[in-house]
Simulated scan of single mutants.
Amino acid sequence: MSRGFTHFDESGAARMVDVGAKNPTERRAVAAASVWVGAETFRRIVDRSLEKGDVLGVARIAGIMAAKRTPDLIPLCHPLAITSVKVEFDLVEDDHRVDIRAEVKVTGRTGVEMEALTAASVAALAIYDMCKAVDKGMVIGDVKLLRKEGGKSGTWAREEPDVRTGPTR
């Protein structure tokens, strides 16, 4: 009944995958997200002139904390002893966009794709929260896994070009 989905048993019931027999390996995942903001909001993020403070600093901490709390947020995720979380930002002025890149590392029996995706997503939500008083029209999008390394399946990297058409605001 599982049809190749590892989180379901033979009867179709949800289960946490047993990774106990797997050997720990170094694993790494990189995920991305983007936040489109208005021109004035973008300027205030860059100038650090929003009343709530350093938007990107808060978003970085939010992303790191989220990666560590992924098993509390996503059902059936294993708690992991994460060894590194990095959250970086690229400010794209001509599109009034904040690109987020989250990288998570672990030496363990299962990958950190969900942790990287959670870090990027929550960093985007934190940007929205920090700026919502001045810009409720922000758009969060382009949440995606860019790369994963390690484990039985080895390395996977997104092949599609990184083409953004932008949101409808």
Rank of each mutant, 00 (worst) to 15 (best):
K144G: 10
E115P: 04
A81N: 09
P71N: 12
V87I: 13
S153W: 07
I140L: 00
L145Q: 03
G151E: 03
V106D: 02
P75R: 05
C131H: 05
M114I: 06
I127E: 00
D95R: 13
L73M: 14
K132C: 15
G137E: 15
V87R: 01
T83Y: 06
R97K: 07
V143L: 13
A66R: 08
E159G: 15
F89M: 06
E160A: 15
K144T: 01
D142R: 13
T165G: 07
I100W: 08
D90Q: 11
A157C: 10
D90F: 01
G166Q: 02
A116R: 03
S153L: 07
T118P: 03
D72Q: 12
K136A: 12
G141S: 07
D129C: 06
K68W: 04
A123G: 00
E93D: 04
T83L: 00
A59Y: 00
L145V: 11
K86W: 13
T118L: 04
A157F: 14
V106A: 09
D90C: 05
G150N: 10
G150Q: 01
D129H: 09
D95C: 04
I74D: 15
K136L: 07
R97L: 02
H78N: 11
G137T: 13
D94T: 14
G166A: 01
K136W: 11
E88R: 11
T110E: 08
E115K: 11
R158H: 15
D135N: 12
R101F: 09
P71M: 15
K136E: 13
E88W: 03
E159W: 15
L125Y: 10
L117A: 10
T155P: 08
M65Q: 14
T168V: 14
L91A: 05
A133K: 06
F89E: 08
V112M: 12
M138Y: 12
T155C: 10
G154C: 12
V104A: 06
A67V: 12
D135Q: 09
A133R: 10
G63K: 05
V134H: 02
A157K: 14
H96G: 01
G151N: 00
E88I: 11
K148Y: 07
S84I: 03
L145W: 07
V106H: 05
M138P: 11
E159R: 14
G154Y: 12
T155H: 09
D99N: 03
T107W: 03
T165V: 07
S84C: 06
R69I: 03
R69T: 07
D99V: 02
A62V: 01
V122H: 01
A116Q: 02
R164I: 05
R158G: 10
H96P: 00
A133Q: 07
R169S: 00
P161V: 09
T168C: 04
R101I: 14
K144L: 03
I127R: 02
D162H: 07
H78I: 09
M114E: 08
G137L: 12
E115D: 13
I74M: 13
S153F: 05
D72G: 06
R69C: 04
E159Y: 15
V98W: 00
D142W: 06
R164C: 03
D95A: 06
V112R: 10
K152H: 05
V143P: 08
G154F: 15
G150C: 10
L91M: 14
E115S: 13
A67E: 12
T107L: 07
I64S: 10
T165R: 07
K148W: 11
V87G: 02
A123F: 05
